[in-house]
Structure formats: C-alpha cells, structure tokens
Design a binder for these strands. Structure first.
Lengths: 235, 235
DNA sequence: ACCTGAACACCGTTCAAGT
DNA sequence: ACCTGAACACCGTTCAAGT
C-alpha cells in the first residue's frame, strides 16, 4: 500500500518479501510435484468440490495462473491426483502364494487406497494410470498362470475389480456423507427418504456397520465362483 | 419500460406474450415434471457437464431463475434425475423363479438402466432413491427366503450390487469416452499412456469387446460363490 | 403464484505484460 | 523461464421487483 519500488535490492534486513507473502506458504519454488501434493491434501481435507485453481494457488501462496506453468489444465491435475494416489497401491504376498492369495492381496490394496483417500476415489472412472494398469497386467498374468484360459483371465480380473470398485465406491460415498449433508447439502435428498433410510439402517444396525466383513464375504464368494470356473475349464 | 399497470385486464388480442417468447419452446407451463424430463434428455445427449441451470432454462424457453420455483436447488435436480432414471428398472422373472433367477434379473435390470443412460450413471454414488431402495429390499428378502441368514442376506446383496455397480461404471465410462477426448479433452490422459492402453487393448482385441459376456461371467461367478455360502450355512 | 433482471461471489482459461 | 493482472465467458443462487 505504501512504497512499491526498490524491489531488487536486498540491503534492507527486515523484509525481503519472503514473509510478506500473503496467507499462503510460498517458500520453496513451484513444481508439478509440489502442486500435486497440495492438491491431494486439499481434496483429502475438503473434497473435490473445494479444488479450484484459484483455491489451490492460494494454498500455495501463488496466483492461480502460475499453476499453468506446471500443469496444462485442471483435467490433467485431476488425473495427476488419481495417478499419485493409485501409485500408493502395495499388495503384499509371499513368492509362493497361489492365485487366490495374490488376487486377494491385489484387491485389498486397491480398497486400502480408496479408504485412505475417500474423496479422491470418485476419480477412478478415469482410465487407470500407469501404476494401476501395471497392477492390472500382473493380476491378469497371475490368473493366466493359474490355468485360466486367456479370455477368462481378462474377464475374471474384470469381475474381481468390478466388485471392488463397486464396493469401495459405495463405502467411500457413505464415509464422506455426514447426515446433515444428506438432507440439505450437496445431495438434497428429500426428508422422508432420509427417514426411510434411517429406519432401514437401524433395522440392520450392527450389520451394516462391519464393512470389512461385508467386503470379505463378497470377495471370497467371487473367488470361489471363479475357482469353480477355473476347474471346469481345466481340460 | 413504458406503462406497467393494467396487469389484470386481458382485452388486447394481438399478443398475450405466448408467441414472443424467445428461441426456446415455451408452450406448456413449467413444472417439476417437465423440468426433470428436459434435464434427463439434456444429460443423455450432452453429458452432466452440459447441465447448468442457465442452459436448462434456455432449453425450456425460460429464464434460469424460473426453475427455482419448481426445484429447490441443482443438487435436488440431480437427485431427481437419478430417481427418474432408476425408476425405469424393471426386472422380469416368473413367480416361481428361484433366488438366482430373481437376483440375475434384478442385477440385469440395473445394468440396463446404466446402458440406457450412461451419462447419468455417474450420479449413482448418491443414496438410492425410492424405487431403487425398494428393489434392494425385495432382493434382500429374496435372499432371506432362499435360506441366507439375515446378515448374509444383506452382505450377499451388497456383493452382487457392488459387482454390478463396478462393472457398469467402467462400462459406461468407456462408452462415453471417444478417443479424442481421451488425450486432450476432459481427461487429459498423457499421450504415451494412451498408446500403452491402445496396445493392451489390441492385445485382447476381440476379448474386451464383448461386455455382455464379461458381465455374465462375473455375475455367474458371484452367484456360484454365494450359492456355496448358502449351502454351507444350511444347518 | 410464478417469472424476471440485476447482482454477488465464484469458476477455468487466454493473453499480453512483466521480471 | 516463470509469474502476474485483467479480461472473457461462464457458474449457482439471492433478492427485490414485476405481473
């Protein structure tokens, strides 16, 4: 508001502009990495609706337009977020695990990243980025090695991954939904329906609670079903 | 701008405002029903991103703000769209169909509405509206009648519906995606990844094509797995 | 009761300009 | 090479005003 010149001499010791930098924390220089990191944090904390270029810039102590020097568009940013999050997948199984153990681990790892980043999970309808499609290839290979014919290896993988995607998308959607939001917020579900759902939920109170158990039941059922299929196609 | 009184007499015969009404087709009066109908059509044709209050108003030959006389918010509008589309579900099975046939029909009907309205399907992470949650109850009852213990009836239903949701959301997402959009449009998938995917797709060319077959394989596997479970819990 | 126009506080992105 | 400010063409929604 007062003097604005003398920008390039730094003889004054009190201020070098570093500290006067507005609410955001602009200390290190901007980079794709730093932007994605901040974006994931913002979405984790405030949800996808809260992510705008302006808001993200602010978070990084920078003008919105500066982001475009490192990221071509918001769409690319979203894709980068998905990529970053899915690359956290880390299925654990021993070297001599059978196909069921391997696929169980793979699907479990996928669910875990969903639970770790529930508000990011909605992005998963995009084509899978590198890390995830690498995982897909591995799993299909596992199925193939286990004796599934080529076509069935693909279909069996689709079957498992469809189940997990569906399960986790319901799970994360409910995790993110506080009851208040249900009736008036983003969703605007009519009130009588909220009541009806409440009733249905009370009815199965303890039941609906245990997502882990529900997840495993479905996963094991699918694995059992696929095992039947595998045996049937063994010569 | 000129005279503004004489509002309640209607002696002028030339114009009653009906024909001077701007590009849109404002013939019948506005109503929630008419709005939802236009909204579904707009989303079916142009996608969810194209649906804005202003655009929808224009489609109906009316100012955006007029919509708020019949619909409380855009969120409510979206929910209405989902409701309307999901109410099209119509599973067909004979009166003496067993649980597998019933569930197969139920899940098939769900997939069909997804295929009929691929661009609407993304809304399905919202809590299910009346028609769909009625269907859910029916299916859980079927499972219960077939001998599944109460808890397993719920979980088995979740398992099936999770599979279908996951499958159809991948299916509709790919249906909606033209290759051009992949690399530059909304998705902004990096080019080398597009190539990699192309390669993977070519590898399984004829395979990936047949979604119907893939869907049935997974569904039957799940049903088989659940049948094993059911038999196991029959005393 | 229903429709409108102007306004508010936002968006993503382009572009010319600064350093 | 990277950052900025102003501008453009949009958003959803409030509110006072018209009929």
């Amino acid at each position: 508001m007062t003097v604005t010149n003398m920008s390039q001499n730094q003889d004054s010791d009190q201020y070098d502009g570093r500290f006067a930098m507005s609410p955001g924390r602009q200390t290190r220089t901007l980079s794709r990495e730093r932007i994605l990191q901040a974006a994931v944090r913002l979405v984790d904390e405030q949800g996808l609706e809260a992510l705008s270029m302006r808001r993200l810039g602010q978070e990084l102590g920078v003008q919105a337009m500066s982001l475009y020097n490192h990221v071509p568009s918001k769409a690319a940013l979203l894709y980068g977020i998905l990529e970053r999050v899915l690359s956290e997948m880390n299925p654990l199984y021993g070297p001599d695990a059978d196909w069921r153990e391997r696929l169980r681990a793979g699907m479990g790892a996928f669910r875990q990243v969903g639970l770790a980043h529930p508000r990011v999970f909605a992005l998963n309808t995009r084509p899978w980025p590198g890390a995830a499609s690498q995982r897909a290839k591995e799993d299909m290979q596992t199925l193939s090695d286990a004796g599934f014919p080529p076509k069935q290896s693909v279909f069996a993988f689709y079957a498992l991954v469809s189940y997990v995607v569906g399960f986790v998308s319901r799970e994360t959607a409910t995790l993110m939904r506080d009851p208040a939001e249900l009736s008036e917020g983003l969703l605007a579900v009519p009130l009588e329906l909220v009541a009806a759902r409440q009733e249905l939920h009370d009815k199965f109170a303890s039941v609906a609670a245990d997502n882990d158990e529900a997840f495993e039941l479905g996963l094991e059922a699918m694995l059992d079903g696929l095992e039947l299929l595998r045996r049937r196609s063994e010569t």
